[in-house]
């Protein structure tokens, strides 16, 4: 399956990554090659195979509904690039 520049641009938008024009150019070519290599998977008949999203047969892992200590707001916000009071702050969202 081929991947063109428009698709790369769109996918980069979904991933919220800004690409410079030269990056887009280079990346499109590289992804094209990588996907070309990956396409060897289509040679296999997988119609009767179950997908493995987990490799180990573990199930029903649950936690008791018991409160644990939370972080203090100071700790929670310690790494924030921009904060205001006890809030994280981001550029204004225009609804």
């Amino acid at each position: 399956m081929a991947i063109d520049k428009e698709t790369v641009k769109y996918v980069a938008h979904l991933a919220r990554i800004e690409l410079q024009p030269d990056e887009l150019e280079k990346l499109s070519g590289q992804l094209h090659d990588i996907l070309g290599f990956i396409d060897k998977l289509s040679r296999l008949d997988t119609s009767r195979v179950n997908p493995s999203s987990h490799i180990l047969p573990i199930s029903n892992v649950l936690r008791e509904d018991k409160p644990r200590d939370s972080l203090s707001p100071d700790k929670a916000l310690e790494n924030a690039p921009v904060k205001k009071g006890n809030f994280f702050s981001v550029p204004k969202i225009l609804e």
Binding site: D69, P73, F88
Partner: peptide, 20 residues
């Protein structure tokens, strides 16, 4: 507590105080 962690569900707390 919350769905995936032990933070207490407690409304009316100061912002970002029931977080981990």
């Amino acid at each position: 507590t919350k769905a995936f962690c032990g933070c207490a569900i407690d409304f009316g707390r100061e912002p970002n105080s029931s977080v981990c």
